[in-house]
Design a protein around this nucleic acid. Structure first.
Lengths: 218, 218, 218, 218
DNA sequence: AATGAATGAGCCTTCATTCAT
DNA sequence: GATGAATGAAGGCTCATTCAT
């Protein structure tokens, strides 16, 4: 893990440092010297390796997201023919893990949220690349649960109900009530995914029941 | 007193301009000259009327929130003894209205979200003043629906499930799928509140059923 | 002492406030709103009554100096035919009084010193008007003590030796050693004038003796 | 290291420029662009090299004083066992030199005076470091001349009489009477130190004689 | 290739002064 | 005459970026 002359390691070092600092301070409040100092590198290195602060940010975002996806794949390793209920739970769990993770290069959750509220135009496509597949997967799970007779809006609404429940907790880590805040992360994720799954399955079922009788909304 | 030659209240004008710009760009990317130009005022006016950029921001936040609350009170005018189901629906509707509103001085949703992801220390107390009552109200509604035998975590989880579903849509206005994006706001709020209420009542009921049998979680 | 509508009192009020603030903070660090607030007047009054901050400063200087001269005339009320030794002592005492005074409108000392080190071009002539007569008087006293046979340089040197001794203490009020700092002003002036007179009379005598034998210097 | 393409040390250049400008205009009236233009540098360089205007000022003060002390050491190279009279003269001469010097980085006198009348809190300790030793030295010389039987006030008074005589001329360089103003600096210092030494030795002797009979004052 | 030095553009803020009443 | 509101000019400072090596 020593610095190599070829500059490869140096770049990775910068990326790591940038991820940490961006996640903590947000894009604007982060300065490039801040990043460079954290990476124990020189002031010019951000521009040298990444072209600009903004491009570095895009890179960070991409890496952070990929990393999170790899670490916590949306299906949590389940086989594709698993029951929809289990796949939903796996999905919820993986999303929560990503949102609440804060280990080495695991700031995807924070950065994601930051971006949602305070979008940086440059990286729109990255977000799309990262989020669209996730939403599609979610929608296919929901579809399985709802059956084929529902319209697309219903699908979207249900998918969003689930996703938003998960993402909401990404914001509030640290602002959770004391008894939850102090829980170890894995325990917290377990509890939350238990709750959200239970809550959402019932919600989806209710929607299904209601919609079935009026298949054509719109 | 406080009126200009052209009959416009300069301070109010600045507040409006600031609200718009802050909501669009966030605190850091907004410059005071930006605000002043938008308000067709001079560069010194922000400091003259508000003391500093930061104080203006606090003022904006406060005003935006008050405005939103006044326009869409959390109980939507219901009597306190209304059935919990109806109060829940009213709550959801009012919150959605606030999140999706974007008219005159109605950027509360955007600003709120921006703050959640990219907190500005200065206005913490304002946020607390604004959000805590809302959460309490939500929790009392949920409590009525769940009954008294549930533990606090359960209460919190359910309350958050509801709130997060609503807030999630604040992010995504304009990024909604085309068929929803083009809906008139009131129509969209109606559909969403219908969905979230249905979904959540079922979710809460399921949680109640499950929890009743194991009243002590922890 | 009530405010009159004719504006006369208001002007005096401003002058007094300005004197106090200028003496405490110096020209640059003083702001006109500072002065106006101290005078319980409006922001525009300095410019209205005096034209500009700078002109007010000149006015302050003039008033302060006149005031000091009136309160502590250089001859301390002695008859012109008093012995030169006594006139010297009176001169020293009056100068010290002016330097160490800090009562109502009595900041002449502070302002004088401030000006000496940090000259404000505008008021040069005022200073000349105020100081030249003083120097002349001092020189006439010294001349009497030295006799007529000394050259002008000697005269000047001696006069300055006396004046500088007095003025030096204007700087250091408050930075004097503790045992002196706590003395009541009149007591301090008495001690200092005693010392400076004794010291200077001997000094002048020595100069006289030395010079007499070499009447033509350089 | 620290050299520019044109071979000049930018930091030293700024220090020199700042010294000159500060000495001429005082702290407040000096602007950093003024300094930077004088140093033919860019607007950001003051902050780059010194952190802030204030820190630059402290640096200037320190340098100016050290420089003056090195150039004109208080003992003018005399052996410590030299007669007190000669040491007094050397002290006076060195102090006068410093006050009247105005060559390369030799504005110590001006800056010193400016500080005395218009103190800048930041550099209090620097002043103390610079002035206290000087005062102590002066007092030890005076003590030798007065003998051991005098009280501390007497010591202080005499020391101040000497110091103030010297410093007084720092103010008035250029405002001296014509015949003195045009003298070459070394000649002027010679004349003044001759005078002040003569004057002060006599003054001190007189004080000694008077005090000896009333050793305990106050 | 890689870096420390240096910079210019721009930001927030202050304040003497002016203006409309 | 007198004032509160309003402003333009300028100041110190930050920081992403460029330059010379």
């Amino acid at each position: 893990m020593g610095k190599r002359k070829d500059g490869l390691d140096r770049k990775a070092q910068l990326l790591e440092a940038a991820t940490k600092v961006f996640a903590r301070k947000g894009y604007d409040k982060t300065t490039v010297v801040d990043i460079c100092q954290t990476a124990k590198s020189n002031t010019a290195s951000v521009n040298y390796y990444f072209g600009s602060k903004e491009e570095l940010y895009a890179e960070v975002w991409k890496a952070a997201f990929q990393n999170a996806i790899e670490k916590y794949p949306p299906d949590m390793g389940l086989l594709p023919d698993t029951a929809a209920e289990d796949r939903l739970k796996a999905f919820i769990k993986s999303l929560l893990h990503r949102m609440l993770d804060s280990g080495e290069l695991g700031y995807a959750g924070q950065i994601l949220l930051m971006e949602m509220a305070n979008p940086t135009e440059t990286i729109d496509h990255i977000k799309r690349d990262a989020i669209d597949p996730m939403r599609k997967r979610m929608m296919s799970i929901v579809q399985q649960l709802l059956g084929n007779s529902v319209c697309e809006e219903t699908l979207i609404f249900c998918a969003m109900s689930v996703i938003h429940q998960c993402m909401g907790f990404g914001f509030r880590r640290g602002k959770l009530p004391p008894q939850l805040r102090e829980l170890e992360k894995n325990r917290l994720v377990d509890m939350l995914s238990e709750h959200i799954t239970l809550f959402s399955l019932a919600g989806i079922a209710a929607v299904k029941e209601t919609t079935v009788q009026t298949p054509q909304r719109a």
